[in-house]
């Protein structure tokens, strides 16, 4: 059986909120290392990969592998019933028909119990190859969100160029063009404002802004976001969570002229 108690229901709420517009029906794969999710959007352009490690829960118990097939719209409806500082416990039997969600108030004696009917989801599991990226950029998540939201007003696509000059986000549209360049930057007082660029080769790639704006819904989960780029391979956008957990998005590039 699965029993996973999360001190902050809000964390799970935010994760589901960040991915629900990208993917609809997902398997939450539970085993003794934690709860993982991997799903592609309908167009097979973007992939979501979430890992909530067992250390993120207290206690965490999962005796055998359980796949919880959940519709995220249904899950969102139920998670709305949790107050943001509630404690969340996920429960399921070994061959479950339902997943149970229990919300407990840390301050009062309220206990709310909900269940969601599970679905059989036949999902392909993709092998994501280990990649030595040509460029890795860590930057404030809010800054990345702002750049994506600003540039989508002008164009559908953004080119991300990383060179020893820094990283340049540029777009061209019908009304004109826009570009934002960031250089490596260390803020001693506010390390969450740091911009760190590690580059082994210059990289230049083009991506659809619609997807990037979507990924940025995860901005509330982490102060910093990490972008990993190599020419001609999918972009990795990573939000690190506490206890080595993470929410990652992959996006296929646009290529050719």
């Amino acid at each position: 059986m699965l029993e996973a108690r999360l001190e902050q229901a809000n964390l799970f709420k935010k994760v589901v909120d960040a991915i629900k517009d990208l993917v609809q029906d997902c398997n939450f794969d539970c085993n003794d290392s934690g709860i993982a999710l991997q799903a592609m959007d309908n167009s097979h352009v973007a992939l979501v990969s979430m890992m909530l490690r067992s250390e993120s829960f207290a206690p965490f118990r999962c005796d055998r592998n359980i796949a919880l097939g959940i519709n995220l719209t249904s899950l969102t409806k139920v998670l709305k019933c949790a107050q943001s500082d509630d404690i969340l416990t996920l429960k399921a039997e070994d061959a479950p028909d339902v997943v149970e969600l229990v919300f407990e108030s840390a301050e009062s004696d309220r206990i709310s119990e909900y269940s969601i009917k599970l679905m059989d989801i036949d999902q392909e599991h993709l092998g994501i190859p280990e990649t030595d990226y040509g460029a890795t950029i860590s930057m404030p998540a809010a800054e990345f969100q702002r750049i994506c939201r600003d540039l989508i007003a002008l164009s559908e696509s953004v080119s991300i160029e990383c060179s020893k000059e820094g990283v340049k986000f540029a777009c061209q549209g019908d009304i004109g063009s826009g570009a934002v360049t960031l250089r490596q930057h260390t803020n001693v007082d506010k390390p969450e404002m740091n911009v760190e660029i590690n580059m082994s080769e210059p990289v230049s790639l083009t991506f659809s802004l619609k997807y990037l704006v979507n990924f940025c819904k995860a901005s509330g989960l982490s102060n910093q976001v990490r972008l990993c780029l190599s020419n001609e391979v999918p972009l990795l956008v990573e939000y690190s969570l506490a206890n080595n957990s993470h929410l990652r998005f992959y996006l296929a590039p646009k290529i050719g002229d």
Binding site: H44, A46, L47, E124, H125, L126, G127, I128, Y250, D257
Partner: peptide, 14 residues
């Protein structure tokens, strides 16, 4: 214009 690639060619089915 550039064409949107799919992830299928990058990630293999396990």
């Amino acid at each position: 214009p550039k064409h949107q690639q799919s992830l299928d060619s990058y990630f293999c089915t396990r």
